[in-house]
Lab assay of single mutants.
Amino acid sequence: TSEVNPQMLQDLQAAGFDEDMVIQALQKTNNRSIEAAIEFISKM
């Protein structure tokens, strides 16, 4: 599995997102940004 940015993971979990969804979103967006991860999650 590709690495996820631990700070982004922590921030998104703090915002109430599920850890598994956050990890998948960060991997799919290559840790580009929190906004990109949220957009990915919203389309899941």
Rank of each mutant, 00 (worst) to 15 (best):
F17I: 05
L26C: 04
E39V: 01
M44V: 14
I41D: 11
M21Y: 05
Q7K: 14
D18H: 09
E3N: 10
L9N: 04
F17G: 04
D11A: 13
A15H: 05
Q7S: 09
M21G: 05
I34W: 03
M21V: 15
E35H: 09
I41F: 03
I41G: 06
L12C: 03
S2P: 15
Q24E: 15
E3R: 08
Q10I: 06
N31Q: 02
K43P: 05
D18L: 02
Q24M: 13
S42A: 13
F17H: 10
V4I: 09
S33A: 01
E35A: 09
I38K: 15
Q24D: 13
I38Q: 13
I41A: 06
Q10L: 09
Q13K: 15
K43L: 10
G16Q: 00
I41W: 01
V4C: 06
E19A: 11
M8P: 01
D11I: 11
E19H: 13
I23T: 12
N31A: 04
Q7G: 09
D11P: 00
F17D: 08
I38R: 13
E19L: 07
I23F: 06
D20W: 06
E19F: 06
K28F: 09
A14K: 13
N5T: 02
E19C: 08
S42C: 07
I34V: 14
P6D: 13
V4D: 05
M8R: 02
Q13I: 15
E35D: 13
M44W: 07
I23R: 14
A14N: 10
F17E: 06
K28Q: 13
A14I: 06
T1I: 11
S2Q: 12
N5V: 01
A25H: 00
N31V: 02
L9D: 05
E39S: 09
R32G: 08
V4Q: 05
N5L: 00
L12T: 02
E35S: 10
F40K: 08
V22P: 03
K43C: 09
V4M: 04
S33Q: 00
A37E: 04
V22R: 02
E19G: 11
D11Y: 11
Q7A: 08
A14V: 06
D20G: 11
Q13S: 10
T29K: 01
Q27E: 12
Q27V: 12
A15Y: 08
Q24V: 13
N5Q: 03
M8F: 09
Q27T: 13
Q10A: 14
A37S: 04
Q10N: 11
Q24K: 14
V22G: 13
K43S: 12
D20H: 07
I23V: 14
D11E: 15
T29F: 00
G16K: 00
I23Y: 08
D18V: 02
V22L: 03
L26Y: 14
I41N: 04
S33M: 00
L9I: 05
P6M: 13
A36C: 09
M21T: 15
E19K: 15
L26F: 03
I34C: 13
D20I: 05
A36E: 15
E39Q: 09
A36W: 01
N31I: 02
T1N: 15
Q13N: 04
Q10Y: 06
L26N: 05
Q13A: 10
D20C: 08
T1A: 12
D18A: 13
T1P: 08
M8H: 07
Q27Y: 08
I23H: 06
F40I: 09
E3H: 09
D20P: 09
N5W: 00
L12D: 04
I38W: 05
Q24F: 14
T29N: 04
Q24W: 11
L26W: 01
T29M: 00
I41M: 14
M44G: 12
T1R: 11
K28G: 11
L12F: 01
V4S: 04
E35G: 09
L12Y: 00
L9K: 15
N30Q: 12
G16N: 03
D18T: 08
T29L: 00
A37N: 04
T1E: 14
A14W: 01
L9W: 01
I41K: 07
I38A: 12
L9T: 09
E35N: 08
A37R: 01
Q24L: 14
Q27M: 10
D20M: 09
I41S: 08
N30P: 03
A37W: 00
A15G: 03
T29V: 08
A14C: 06
A36M: 06
A15N: 06
E3S: 05
N30G: 14
F40D: 12
N30F: 00
F40Q: 11
